[in-house]
Amino acid sequence: MKTIEMIHPIEQCYDHEPCALAIGFFDGIHTGHQKVIEKMSHIAAEKGLKKAVMTFDPHPSVVLNPEKQRTDYLTPMYEKKRILENLGIDYLFIVPFTSSLAQMEERDFIANYFTKNKVKEVVAGFDFTYGKYGKGNMLKLEADKDGFEVTMVERHALNDEKVSTTLIRKDLKEGNIKSANKQLGRPYKITGLVVQGEKRGRTIGFPTANVEPNEIFVLPRLGVYAVTIKIEQTGKVFKGVCNVGVKPTFHDPEKQQISIEVNIFNFSDSIYGERVEVEWHDFLRPEQKFDGIDSLIAQINKDKEKAIEILNTLHID
């Protein structure tokens, strides 16, 4: 997959073959987004075009709504690229979402990013908007198209509720991992580096891998989870139980940063410095403060048993 950053002067970005284009922010690349990309891929194959995706960076809210700006993501750009490459996309166009882009008139956007950009087919969801004040929509795009065809993908729902990045973020924040995963079409994933921690877990018989995310991911609700962890270098996947939180039994929650710590089952190797992928399968309980070490150890054992029970029901590569 070739990544093309659409920087000005934009004409220098046009050195590529004619393509069919799926456009959107695509945070999460959830099942709704996948419908858009699948439709684009089908049209591209049918018409002998390259498969392309256009996304934006950062999220438009950073420019349009600073009070509610979104700076953490379900799929930060590195993860988004990885997923799209696995989907067989030929070109990824990254458009910087700046104040000048937000002020661009609809026809100028169409001309610069579609017509002159060798886009022959534009595919987007029913709610896609573009241009100054977001006045452009799919009906207007159909009316103003110039040198390309337009395909609108209808609303995608599960249990009569629209699949959306907003809903998935809400589910994660509430610990509704199964609901989030169903909408994503895969387990939610955070990637990062195993770094040195306090090593407190090993003193009570539960050594943990302290995972520092390599990008700004949406963190699930503070608490304990059944997870799997993949070591990128070896490709091996292990089951485990993960605590996301501030460890209130040992620290003042008001003064501590959130950590991601995974107790990996049947594992004793040192993996400091390794890049890992943590996949979230189920929420076990909220983070809580215990009266002492003994009650903490008893609860961790219960968490481990529950996680093993859950993970044994899953097909894990």
Results as ranks from 00 to 15, higher is better:
F114V: 08
P76G: 04
A180F: 04
F109Q: 10
P76L: 05
L158Y: 12
S100E: 14
K170Y: 07
K132T: 05
N181F: 04
A102I: 13
A111C: 12
Y73T: 03
D108Q: 11
F97I: 11
D171W: 07
K162D: 03
L141H: 09
I94C: 02
K170M: 12
Q183V: 00
P58L: 03
Y113I: 01
M77L: 14
N176P: 00
I177Y: 06
T165G: 07
S100P: 06
P60R: 09
V95G: 01
E161K: 15
K51I: 02
Q103D: 13
K132F: 04
K50S: 08
D127E: 14
D57Q: 06
L92T: 13
A45N: 13
Y91W: 08
I89M: 13
V123I: 13
Q103M: 10
K135C: 08
N117C: 12
D108F: 00
M54Q: 02
F114H: 02
T55I: 00
N176I: 00
T115V: 01
G125C: 02
R82W: 13
E105S: 12
K173I: 02
D72C: 13
S61V: 11
Y133N: 15
E142V: 05
K81N: 09
N112P: 14
K51T: 00
L158K: 09
A157D: 08
T98Q: 01
F109N: 14
G136M: 11
M54R: 02
Q183Y: 12
N117Y: 02
E67P: 10
V95P: 02
I168T: 07
T166L: 04
P66S: 10
L87G: 06
H59E: 08
S99G: 04
T98R: 06
P76T: 06
K118M: 10
I83L: 13
K135T: 11
Y78S: 14
G125Y: 00
V150D: 06
Y133M: 15
V119M: 05
L92H: 11
M152T: 13
K132L: 03
R107T: 14
L101I: 04
